[in-house]
Amino acid sequence: MNKEQMDRIHTGKGFIAALDQSGGSTPTALLQYGISKDSYSNDEEMFNLVHEMRTRIITNPAFNSDHILGAILFENTMDRKIGDQFTADFLWKNKNVVPFLKIDKGLDGLENGVQLMKPIPNLNELLKRAVEKNIFGTKMRSVIKEANSEGIRKLVEQQFDIGKKIAQAGLIPIIEPEVDIHSKDKEKSEKLLKSEISNQLAALDKDVKVMLKLSIPTVDNFYHDLMDNPNVLRIVALSGGYTQSEANKKLAHNHELIASFSRALSQGLTAQQTDKEFNLMLSNSICTIYEASIK
């Protein structure tokens, strides 16, 4: 484990950029970027285009360690290069930005008010490759739709069971039990979620470190006491479908909670923009998300 990276994630000022749209969400991400489905005819062409988009973001002068602590990558991105370096190496060596990897394979169907993660085939092999590619940590997402105590218990249990395997492989797991921002009982779900997270943290070995990626809570600073747990390296927030301005406003009301935004980060960026237009849009987005993260 890289101590410099560990210290940066634990105490650094900034946020984590989520650049991890996967196979299922890539067409939507490209469409928002101004590239329609008729611009590519197969997955390889699609992934080439999305890598060009991510490369344009990562190599931008505004994308730097002054504001950004880490970046979450999709597996396909980890295996590709920026210039003559693999993406994770470029991030750390050229940008001083800590690389993470999304490892989940999507969501199962709704059951007991939640969507668990689908099985992750060849998990050990993937984690080994991540270590070899100098990845620092991993991210995996599941979703809570309803305040169902049994469903939430199983979801958090699944997250931590896999998280322990990730930690054993020498990586830092980002536990991401997203609460749907449109849930009619979001606040109740958050109470159940926090209780289950606390139970799982209490059962961890003292040397195991995890990160939590959570929806911005209904009640300001609701998760703040979890930040003092010795097993928790950092708590970050997903934008969850909020616009950038909405997400920033809500985030700023939660002391020491930092962003890990995806759609809210890339909002307004298009392939058709000139470099000057693209740079200005990305710079403004990074600055506003950073400001909301250091409140």
Score class of each variant (00 low, 15 high):
Glu150Pro: 05
Thr11Tyr: 13
Ile144Met: 14
Glu75Thr: 08
Ile286Tyr: 04
Ile166Met: 09
Ile258Asn: 10
Asp180Arg: 07
Gln200Pro: 15
Ala167Gln: 04
Glu196Met: 11
Thr218Cys: 12
Met227Ser: 07
Met1Tyr: 10
Gly109Cys: 06
Glu125Val: 01
Lys102Ala: 09
Asp228Arg: 06
Glu256Lys: 14
Asn64Phe: 07
His224Trp: 01
Met227Asn: 06
Gly240Pro: 00
Ser245Lys: 07
Gln5Phe: 00
His67Trp: 14
Glu157Ile: 12
Glu196Asn: 11
Ile152Leu: 15
Lys184Ser: 15
Leu116Cys: 11
Pro177Met: 02
Leu233Glu: 13
Ile58Tyr: 00
Lys209Tyr: 15
Asp161Ile: 14
His253Pro: 03
Leu193Cys: 07
Asp220Gln: 13
Asn96Pro: 01
Ile162His: 05
Ala17Lys: 07
Glu190Lys: 00
Ala17His: 13
Asp225Ser: 14
Leu31Lys: 07
Pro61Thr: 00
Leu212Thr: 01
Ile152Ala: 06
Leu116Tyr: 02
Gln200Asp: 06
Pro99Ser: 14
Asn284Arg: 14
Asp228Glu: 08
Ala17Tyr: 11
Ile162Ala: 10
Phe278Trp: 01
Met46Ser: 08
Glu132Phe: 02
Ala130Leu: 02
Asp38Gly: 07
Pro121Cys: 04
Ser239Met: 14
Ala252Gly: 12
His224Lys: 15
Gly163His: 03
Tyr290Lys: 06
Asp275Phe: 02
Ile286Met: 08
Asn231Ala: 12
His67Tyr: 11
Leu201Tyr: 09
Asn199Phe: 11
Gln21Asn: 14
Gly170Asp: 01
Val98Gly: 13
Gly23Asp: 10
Asp228Gly: 09
Val131Gln: 03
Ser149Glu: 12
Gly151Ser: 06
Lys194Arg: 15
Ile120Trp: 00
Lys213Asn: 13
Ile216Pro: 00
Phe222Val: 10
Gly70Glu: 10
Ile135Arg: 06
Ile294Cys: 07
Phe63Thr: 01
Ile181Asn: 10
Ala147Gly: 08
Tyr223Thr: 15
Ala264Glu: 11
Ile286Trp: 04
Ser293Ala: 00
Gly12Leu: 11
Ser65Ile: 00
Leu91Phe: 05
Phe47Gly: 00
Glu190Asp: 03
Leu265Glu: 10
Lys3Met: 10
Lys206Asp: 13
Asp180Ala: 15
Asn279Cys: 04
Lys194Asn: 15
Asn231Glu: 11
Lys188Gly: 00
Leu233Gly: 10
Glu190Ala: 06
Asn148Glu: 01
Tyr33Asp: 13
Ile152Gly: 01
Lys93Asn: 12
Glu45Lys: 15
Ile82Val: 07
His182Thr: 15
Lys37Cys: 03
Asn96Leu: 11
Phe47Trp: 07
Ser39Glu: 11
Leu212Lys: 03
Gly12Phe: 05
Tyr223Lys: 01
His10Asp: 03
Ser183Asp: 06
Gln85Lys: 04
Phe74Gly: 08
Val50Glu: 05
Ile197Met: 15
Arg129Phe: 11
Thr77Gly: 05
Asn112Thr: 08
Asn199Gly: 03
Glu4Ile: 03
Leu204Gln: 12
Gly14Arg: 01
Glu187Thr: 12
Ile181Thr: 09
Ile181Phe: 02
Ile175Glu: 02
Glu44Cys: 01
Asn42Gln: 04
Asn96Tyr: 09
Gly70His: 07
Ala271Pro: 00
His253Trp: 04
Thr218Gly: 09
Ala271Thr: 06
Pro99Ala: 08
Glu291Ile: 02
Asn2Tyr: 04
Lys206Thr: 13
Ile166Gln: 08
